[in-house]
Computed example of a mutant assay.
Amino acid sequence: MPDLTGDPNQHPPTDSLTGSCLCGSITVTINDSELFTKPRGHLCHCSNCRKVAGSYVSSNLLIEAEKVDIQDRDGTLKTYEDRATGSGNPVFRSFCSVDGNPVKSETGAYPGKVILKMGMMPRIPQPEMEGFGLHRHAWQGKHEGITMYEVKWAGPDRKPME
């Protein structure tokens, strides 16, 4: 029987967090003293993030690249250049080529930062916002205390939903 690591209560909040893809080839470690001290990250409802997550929402964390260590033990990390974006600017989506696990995204809109796909982590910080709220399904519940934006969650054209 495999060692089940999905219970976040088995992983207390610390300044360092490590997760891996399903096959274990890729490990991601976040080193950030504020990782669990306040709400961080965002839930994204855009169709591309939903596709990458394989779910109705994607849990992401935008963070400085120097706070992230990605190890690719078997050379399985591959990148897809996603040009089907609302802005027309590419998003580089990295994943494990063996098990398909999403790892991170990068875009020129956030130089020096990466967007980590938090589903690979054993504990996920409480999100501070939701993006593409107009794309949410009517049956989804509301998250108390989390600001929801109509479309983008960052940038000059962001607009909170009422």
Rank of each mutant, 00 (worst) to 15 (best):
E144H: 12
P13F: 08
E34Q: 14
D82W: 11
E34P: 01
G119N: 12
T5D: 04
L116M: 09
S58R: 10
D82K: 13
P156M: 06
K117L: 01
C21K: 01
C46H: 04
A65T: 14
T37P: 02
M118R: 01
D74N: 14
P127E: 00
T27M: 05
G133V: 06
G155R: 12
G145L: 09
S59G: 06
S47Y: 13
L61W: 08
K117A: 15
P39K: 06
H135N: 15
K113I: 01
R40C: 05
L116V: 14
C23P: 11
E66C: 07
G54A: 04
L43I: 15
Y110W: 14
D72G: 11
M1Q: 10
P127I: 03
D32N: 13
K78M: 10
R93G: 06
V68G: 02
V114S: 11
T79Q: 05
K159V: 15
E66D: 15
G133E: 05
F92V: 03
D32Q: 08
H135M: 14
S87I: 08
K117M: 12
K78H: 10
P90A: 13
K159C: 14
P8F: 02
S55N: 12
I63S: 01
V68A: 02
M161G: 07
Y80H: 15
P90G: 05
A65Q: 13
P2C: 00
K38I: 01
R83A: 10
K51Q: 07
M161E: 05
G41Q: 07
Q126Y: 00
S59P: 05
A109M: 14
D69T: 14
E34G: 04
I124C: 02
D157C: 02
K152S: 10
V151F: 04
V52E: 11
M121N: 03
L35D: 06
T14G: 04
L35H: 07
S25H: 00
S59Y: 06
D69K: 14
A65R: 15
K51H: 11
N101F: 10
N89W: 08
